[in-house]
Lab assay of single mutants.
Amino acid sequence: MEQGTVKWFNAEKGSGFIERENGDDVFVHFSAIQGDGFKSLDEGQAVTFDVEEGQRGPQAANVQKA
């Protein structure tokens, strides 16, 4: 798993970007967020995640709040 920080997340659209510790920013969709309840992330929040190849390039998967 990688570690990173939420660069921004739009709760209305359900997507945003995570700033990786090593590498380019990666797209995140709300469906990749693990946990119960409303799936959203806050700017500056620390997260851990896997990276998968999506239709438009790398994207975060199995996102967990650190």
Rank of each mutant, 00 (worst) to 15 (best):
F38N: 06
A66M: 14
D36H: 13
D24Y: 10
Q59K: 09
D50V: 14
N22M: 09
A66S: 12
E19K: 15
E19S: 15
E12M: 13
N62L: 06
G4Q: 01
K39E: 05
G4P: 00
Q45P: 03
P58M: 10
G37W: 06
A11Q: 12
K7H: 07
M1H: 12
M1A: 13
G44E: 02
E52K: 11
F27S: 03
A11F: 11
A60P: 02
G37C: 09
F38R: 07
V26R: 02
G23W: 04
S31Y: 05
A46E: 09
D42L: 15
T5D: 02
V47H: 00
N10C: 13
T5K: 13
F27R: 03
T48S: 09
V51K: 04
A66L: 15
I18R: 00
V63L: 05
E12D: 10
A66I: 15
E12I: 12
A32R: 04
E2T: 09
K13G: 06
A60K: 00
P58D: 06
P58H: 07
S40F: 12
D36P: 12
N22K: 10
E43M: 14
G54W: 05
N22I: 10
S15K: 10
S31V: 03
F38Y: 11
F30K: 04
E52A: 11
F9P: 00
E53S: 10
S40P: 04
F30C: 07
V47T: 03
E19R: 15
K39Y: 05
K39T: 07
H29G: 04
A61T: 12
N62S: 05
V47D: 01
R56N: 11
E43V: 15
F17W: 11
W8Q: 04
V63Q: 00
E2A: 10
V47M: 03
G16I: 03
D24S: 14
G54P: 02
Q55L: 14
K65D: 07
F17T: 03
Q45H: 08
V28A: 01
E12N: 12
E19C: 15
E21T: 12
A60S: 02
E53G: 07
A61V: 14
D25M: 15
A32G: 07
G14M: 02
N10G: 05
G16N: 01
R20D: 04
V51W: 08
S31T: 11
V26T: 02
D36W: 11
D42N: 14
N62R: 10
P58W: 10
K13W: 10
E12W: 14
E53M: 15
E21D: 11
F9K: 02
E19H: 14
K13P: 02
V28Y: 04
E21Q: 12
N62C: 08
Q55I: 14
S15P: 02
E53H: 12
Q3P: 06
M1T: 13
F17K: 02
G16F: 06
K7D: 00
N10E: 03
V26Y: 02
P58R: 10
E52V: 15
A46F: 13
F17Q: 04
K7V: 04
F49W: 02
V47W: 04
G54H: 08
D24M: 12
Q3T: 13
G16Y: 04
E12A: 14
E53I: 14
F38V: 08
G14E: 02
E52Y: 14
H29T: 04
V51A: 02
A32L: 01
V51Y: 06
V26G: 01
G23V: 03
W8E: 02
A66K: 13
F27A: 03
D42S: 15
S15G: 07
Q55D: 12
A66N: 12
D24H: 12
L41Y: 01
F49S: 01
G4N: 01
F38C: 11
Q64G: 08
E53R: 09
D36G: 11
A32N: 08
L41H: 01
G35A: 09
I18Y: 03
R20Y: 07
Q64A: 10
G37S: 06
N62V: 03
D25H: 11
Q34Y: 09
F17Y: 08
K65A: 11
